[in-house]
Design a protein around this nucleic acid. Sequence first.
RNA 1: GGCGGUAUCGUCUAGAGGCCUAGGACGGAGCCCUCUCACGGCUUAAACACGGGUUCGAAUCCCGUUACCGCUACCA
Length: 516
Amino acid sequence: MYFCPLMDKKVRVRFAPSPTGGLHLGGVRTVLYNYLFARQHRGDFVLRIEDTDQTRYVPGAEEYIVDCLQWCGLEPDESPQKGGKYGPYRQSERKEMYKQYAEYLVKKGFAYYAFDTPEELDSMRKEFKTPEDPSPQYGHHTRIKMRNSLTIPEKEVKELMEKGTTHVIRFLMPENDEVSFTDMIRGEVKFNTHTLDDKVLLKADGMPTYHLAVVVDDHLMQITHIFRGEEWLPSTPLHLLLWERLGWKDEIPQYAHLPLILKPDGKGKLSKRDGDRLGFPVYAMQWTDPKTGEVTKGFREIGFLPEAFNNMLALLGWNDGTEKEIFSPEELVEKFSMERVHKGGAKFNFEKAKWFNHEYIKRGDSRMLLPYFKKILQEKNVQENDDRLLSIMDLIKERCTLLPDLWENSFFFFQRPTEYDKESILKKWDADKKQFFKELPAAFSAVESFTPGSLEDAFKSLAERKNLKAGGLMLPLRIILVGGKFGPPVFHIAELLGKQETLERIKIALRWEFMN
RNA sequence: GGCGGUAUCGUCUAGAGGCCUAGGACGGAGCCCUCUCACGGCUUAAACACGGGUUCGAAUCCCGUUACCGCUACCA
């Protein structure tokens, strides 16, 4: 059986997270690819909450996901919050629909009731466990030995049902069928149903499992393309069969299974633990576990720009075939193609991630950075007008990798040095130099425009008159103005400090006893 | 164990039979620029997992091996 979707409908894609905690960067990448594809094809992007596991309910997780998408600039067209004509968008609110479809499958002979208790399932697994088969499945070998509507006489089943005996509905997996489909990234993928099991479709609590819910909802919501993690590849044949048994074979969506994001070291999927261990975020935004109160910082909190974050994620597994690496959101929408997504998993590289952010800060217009800068300054209780802030950023942004670096590279504009790197000054300090700095304020005052060029000229001509080398005086000036060996070119610092403050700082420094 | 997927520099990747003595980026090393730190420029080390085919010719196609990853729940 080969499944080939018809592609003449309006593109509709979806992100369907389970609201159980922080949003992993792999999840954001999945959203990104969905979003880019939708925008490129002028389609719809829907957010659907997969909250069918009541035991894993985490308060606040759904709102958190919505906030993350907003920060990333990847907002859905339809969602529980926004609504839409295919709602509700929360699976827990669609509970009744799933049951009908499950019952329909039973009626058609494509599924059956199973009354086995968890304990019975457990002992079955133990009983059939062999070295060759360490995890026996509930499938064509074992189903005949279990308590289900296939093995129990019809009359008895009816009685059990009438008594309200707890049961699940399982899919009746055909014994020997070929199931194949074309994955947009991987090409043709084949399975034989022989090795597949009778997955639970409807749980004892009446909620569907992922498998039933995803097929029913994707159909009802007219989803045309499913882009999801590679971990779903093995259950795709089940889903395909479900589409077919439910009578929707002609509407099967196109699939693409995205490669996983791996740990930077060792092996396996990247997890929050790896971030904690290696010192970088894994979640998009800060997540506070409501149970333990544990707070986990995200990319936003450590100072990533959402555009840089997206760009980095887009390139983690995709490229446009050229050597271009920096793409604006618009370029991403235009250039992205699922066929060019790399098949293999990618180890996450935090250094490279930071490089993207650095590029965005460095290349970006300071006006774009202004709100971020102002927020930091607010925390530091600094008030300043926008024009000066813009000038400061123009000067320092090339040395800022993360947003907090904006402060680390500019604090000296807002506060006078409290201590000085004495070592560096004293190494070559003498009376002549001291005299030079005593006369410098007058020389600077005499300058007609307080600009880097004229300041440098004044500085150098004074040095010449005093028979000193200007080169040896620059570092002391820097330390006098900001306290240490850091910052942008020193005359630029002076310019932004302004005449009054520059002269003041020179005079203050000269009063320190180590200068004498 | 079974099933599925993947396999190019340390990392992300380009490469869709000859353009490959394998290109770019991050990171590393070195040099230049220089008042500090950066930015920028230049140079450099570093890879086709292995074995068989197919072909005049393979990183590219096929098969096998190996390694790694994923799935194998009334979780998603």
